[in-house]
Every structure is written in structure tokens, then in C-alpha cells.
Amino acid sequence: MAVKVISPGLSTSVQDLGRPGYYHLGIPEGGGMDRFATRIANLLVGNEPGAALLEATFMGPELEFTEAATVAVTGGELPPKVNGEERPTWESFPVKAGDRLSFGYLKGGARAYIAISGGIDVPVVLGSRTTYVLGALGGFEGRVLKAGDELPIGTGTGTSGKSLPANLRRPQISPAELRMLPGLYWHRITEAAGKRFFEDTWKVAPEADRIGYRFRGGAPLEFVEREQPFGAGSDPSNIVDACYPYGSIQVPSGTEPIVLHRDAVSGGGYMMLGVVISADMDLIAQLQPHTPAKFAPVTLDQALAARADNAKLMARAEEYLAG
């Protein structure tokens, strides 16, 4: 069983739930940027939640199936079509040998997750099938898909007509509110700058990708004056090199905040204002360029409560699909 790539879309890659445990060596966790959509797509087609699937960014691929399979598309509203006929999202549907799966224009969100029963059977590298494009590691030949690729597919047991109702999905609210925990370097900016940072509405920059989401449109940060310590660069946004957590918000030269995402670099010399909380990382994955977002400060207790709520949302959806 294989799937032939007729056209790859803009940036379509094999992803799963990631490759944790190597970040200290500079290899990021990776995996589907929208974890909820990744897990649900797999469950809809009868796969394990961490099976390998396709993450399509902004634009869908066109695929041809050599054998029958069950398919589900979740995440952003990227309308799937089988031989030109539209199919629902968040619901499994059958494809026959020779069928072509294509997509209409993106109607909402940014990334769609295309799960195929049996999962994409590329080799496991460091415990995962996730593609890390910067490191040319994992996935299909360590890169995004190209026309002419043939993806090996495992043996599946999916059934069509399985769906997750809208009230069990994570709602997408605009402007997105990204909750963040101010961090170690917060003291580097003035009180007025900190206040402005939360008041301003930011917009996703077109450069935003799996490594980081850049935002612009808010006021430049004002730094507290200091003599730069030995080892730090001369710009006031520079620090002595430090580790970069997932979700950390760096602001090079104080102008455009960048939130590191699943393919993050693991360290560098920019101060970080804090981290976007884990519960809101999926939200970022679904932001199109030029869409508005605001940052909101939370405490560690609030961040942990949000993480628990997020886990409950996931558990409710998984229970529904298991039932």
C-alpha cells in the first residue's frame, strides 16, 4: 500500500507526536504543531494517537491511493475532496484504489492533519517518524514532500463515518489570546514597555513557520539600561547565551516577538520575555499570517490549571471516539 504525491502543497511533511529527549543535543521535539488535531485525526481512522500522518500548511497536497484506505482531515478548515467531490473535515471517509485526494482553499486555521488508516510507515529515527527539516532528519527522506514521492502506508483497521462533533473540539477565537508566563529576563524591559506588550494587538508575520512564530505591529520594547555583561552581544536584547524553551518569546532588537514552536532551536543569545503556556501552543499552530493575537500574563498556577483543562478536553474527545 502506498500513497503517491501528485502535488505536494506548500509545505507538507510527515509528523507524529514528536521526538522528545534530544533537545539538549539541539534536536527539537518536533511533531504535529497542533497536537489535538494530530491525535484526533489518527483516532478517527483507527490509528494509535501517535501514528505518523501528514501536516499540510496553508495549502493541501494532491494524493493518489494505490489501495483502499480510511482518511480523516482535522485541524484547519482545509476542505478535502475525493475525485473532486467534497468530504467533511473531522470525519473519517473511505478512499478506493486509484482515488485522488485533493483540497479546496483553506477556510480557517492554518494547518490540516491528514491521517490515513495504518499510518505513514516511514522509518523510525530516534524514536519518531517526525520530519525535522532543518536537520534533514526523519519523516520522508528528512524533507517536505515533493511531487512523485511514494509514501509507504501501514496496514490499518479504520472505519468511515467516525466524527468528532464541534463542541468537543478546541474553539478558535479571534484575536487569539496567547497566555504567557513572564520569565527570568522580564526585568530587562521597563514597566511601561511590559504594559504595552500586553495591551498591543500583534499580527502574525508571513515568515512564521514550524521553528518560530514571528509577530509584528506592536510597540518596540524599551529596555532598562545596563552595561552588557561579558559574553553578551551589544544589543540590549542580547544576553549571555542560554537555553530556549518551547514557547519562549524572544524579541531580537526589541521589535518583533518570536514564539519558538516545535522545531525550535535549543539555545542562543536573545533574552526571552517568558513562555507561552503549553495549553496555548496548539492555538499558535492554527494562526494564518496577518491574523491578530494578544499576549496575556498568567501565573504558574493558572498555567498548570490551563494545562489540566487542556488535558480534559483531549480526554473527553478521546473517550467520545472510544465509545
Binding site: 506548500l10 496553508f58 483553506l106 508571513p206 494564518q288 499570517p289
Partner: peptide
Amino acid sequence: ILSPLPGT
């Protein structure tokens, strides 16, 4: 003519 992608 519609834009196939978001961007500039």
C-alpha cells in the same frame, strides 16, 4: 482569481 495562500 482567488489567492491560493495566505501571505503578502
